[in-house]
Write a protein that binds this DNA or RNA. Structure first.
Length: 430
DNA sequence: TCTGGGGTCCTAGGACCC
DNA sequence: TCTGGGGTCCTAGGACCC
């Protein structure tokens, strides 16, 4: 029988912060999104206070002050590195792993001898000891059931399986139905707010109802995707583990500004910076882009000013991975959609129509930044090597600017403990 | 004063072709 | 004067995920 495990970090970002600041253990704590915008991770103590996910920080502030909630700005350098460590430890437990997100891994435990609960506990212990992050383990006979098992593990929904490891494959069909009948349909992976509401209207309110619904009816009423979810709930593997991450089909980079931006020159700087980040990712996956989309907007939350949002796709003469060619195209697009006098709060770019660089035909004129242009490829290679070695932004084009009036807010950020020599934790001797 | 960022997949509908 | 049926490709928008 198939056995898929989903391992995920508890309150991952909060746990990362606590590894290096252990005095935060047991204290109510949140991590904020970029720009200190809203809450993206909550400690158990904060969840217990009823603080919802995604609440804007300025709305939570009074309660935070009152209850001494600690807030940290997000520190993706730290979380990314901790994530890498966690996934590597988890990989030791099975030959087949899919890294699903920054804090989640699927493992294929099919055919593993012995009790899977015990096995799950050993995963928990090793990750905790070697990386410092607490995790829960859910096991089921499909990815969707593994996700649900993980939910059960976190909330101890199956009482005979306490301690953060739940194996649904050990339950009989009747026991599984009984367990799923205590889980709201909206908790099922792939059932979001909209679908949940529609399903409830049809009388399908629990995960058990959905499992026992007619696939045909569901598929006809919704889509093949939801139909697959029903099959997966019945233990049929419709979604395979993807051990090698497929290359991205589009690469995005966007940010909210720390304060409203009015000037075109500042927007061009910001967009040039985003293009630098995105094109770096593009080169890492050895692809080129044939088009770039630029967009900007004012705040959708202000009621006293009209909302403006616009975007444009700029096609390139020739597919490229060069930050220079891409930034030039982005600037050109930006000029088309920019309206003077508006308080812009966000801008971004998206690289589109990606393809492997070795599949691009030779260009007769070898325009600036073409992947076949050896000199420009050497320049980009140097750029990437230097930035990897000495830190992001060591080498960059002047177009990214220096004053950066658009830079995002990040007022409670912890240090890059694991990736910067100067930020290593210091152990005091008593 | 202050509301994140980065993705995927599917479907419907229009343009266009024979 | 009558005005079919089948197919592909593209885009926009909606839904979902973390």
């Amino acid at each position: 029988m198939t056995a898929i495990a989903l391992i995920d970090g508890n309150n991952f970002y909060v746990s990362c912060e606590r590894v290096f600041q252990p005095h935060f253990e047991g204290k109510p704590m949140v991590v904020l999104s970029n720009n200190d915008g809203c809450v993206v991770a909550r400690s158990a103590e904060v969840k217990a206070m009823g603080v919802p996910m995604g609440i804007p920080w300025f709305k939570l502030k009074p309660l935070a002050r009152q209850n001494r909630i600690i807030a940290k700005s997000s520190n993706y350098t730290l979380y990314g590195d901790m994530s890498h460590r966690m996934h590597s430890v988890i990989a030791q437990f099975a030959p087949e792993q899919e890294i699903y997100s920054i804090d989640e891994s699927f493992l294929n435990l099919t055919g593993m001898p012995g009790d899977l609960i015990t096995y799950g506990q050993s995963i928990q212990q090793r990750v905790k000891q070697w990386v410092g992050i607490p995790v829960c383990v859910g096991i089921g006979s499909s990815k969707t059931l593994a996700k649900l098992a993980n939910h059960c593990a976190k909330k101890t929904i199956v009482p005979i399986m306490p301690g953060g490891v739940t194996d649904l494959t050990q339950l009989s069909n009747a026991e599984l139905d009984e367990t799923l009948s205590r889980i709201a349909v909206g908790e099922v992976w792939g059932i979001g707010r909209r679908l949940s509401a529609q399903l409830i209207d049809m009388g399908i309110t629990t995960a058990a109802h959905l499992k026992n619904a007619s696939i045909n009816r569901i598929q006809k009423h919704f889509s093949v995707v939801v139909g697959r979810t029903v099959a997966e709930l019945n233990g049929e593997m419709c979604l395979e583990l993807e051990d090698v991450a497929p290359p991205k089909q589009q690469i995005m980079s966007s940010r909210s500004f720390g304060q409203p931006v009015y000037r075109l020159e500042d927007l061009i700087e910001a967009v040039t910076s985003y293009t630098a980040r995105a094109s770096e990712k593009l080169r890492r996956q050895q692809h080129v882009a044939s088009a770039i989309q630029v967009y900007l907007r004012t705040s959708p939350f202000k009621t006293d000013a009209p909302f403006y949002s616009n975007g444009v796709v700029v096609r390139l003469m020739q597919p490229t991975n060069s930050v220079f060619a891409l930034a030039q195209a982005a600037t050109q697009g930006l000029k088309q959609i920019y309206k003077p006098g508006l308080p812009y709060t966000k801008a971004g770019i998206m690289l589109l129509d990606l393809q492997p660089s070795n599949r691009v035909p030779l260009d007769l004129f070898s325009a600036l930044g073409a992947p076949t242009d050896l000199r420009s490829q050497a320049l980009l290679k140097t750029l990437d090597t230097m930035n990897e070695r000495f830190g992001r932004g060591t080498l960059r084009s002047a177009g990214e600017g220096f004053a950066k009036p658009w830079a995002m807010r990040s007022t409670h950020k912890s240090r890059a403990y694991t990736t910067d020599w100067a930020a290593l934790a210091v152990v005091q001797r008593g």
